[in-house]
């Protein structure tokens, strides 16, 4: 049996490593493209730096309702019918490795610095 000290050091180290990884992923240079995925399929890629006026993207059907708005340099989920509204609360984003996700509606927004094809989709 390991001592309490062993477990505390182990979890402490895990906490530090995860904290550094999170910080690095959040502190990314501003992305140029936002890729919108619905049900795993890439439905739209928006060049955030090229958006000159507000762009509305609404997805509904099969119990889903999500309204995504893109403005110059940023994007957000502004309306949704999901229970916790966590995706909406993530607010306006313009970068980061960590995507905006609405799990109940199966919608995700990923940020990239280049207009890459949907690599995952190609592999899958």
């Amino acid at each position: 049996m390991k001592s309490n000290k062993f477990w505390m050091i182990l979890f402490g180290a895990l906490l530090v490593v995860s904290g550094v990884a999170t910080f690095l992923m959040i502190d990314m240079p501003q992305a140029v493209y936002a890729q919108i995925f619905i049900d795993g399929a890439l439905v739209e890629t928006i060049n955030l730096s090229a958006v000159s006026e507000t762009k509305d993207i609404v997805s509904h059907g099969e119990g889903r309702y999500v309204r995504i708005v893109a403005e110059p340099g940023r994007i957000a989920i502004v309306e949704t019918n999901c229970y916790l509204q966590l995706c909406k609360r993530q607010g306006w984003r313009n970068s980061g490795v960590i995507p905006i996700v609405c799990l109940p509606n199966r919608v995700a927004i990923r940020f990239t610095s280049a207009n890459l094809p949907d690599i995952d989709g190609v592999v899958g």
């Binding site: 979890f11 895990l14 906490l15 490593v17 995860s18 904290g19 990884a21 999170t22 992923m25 995925f37 049900d39 795993g40 399929a41 490795v97 960590i98 995507p99 996700v101 799990l103 199966r106 919608v107 995700a108 990923r110 995952d120 899958g124």
Partner: peptide, 19 residues
């Protein structure tokens, strides 16, 4: 469910929350 494997980037946050 979302068909987006890169959601794994949430893992470090989930580990912190889990601890």
């Amino acid at each position: 469910v979302t068909g987006t494997p890169w959601i794994i980037t949430y893992l470090p946050i989930f580990i912190i929350a889990g601890i």
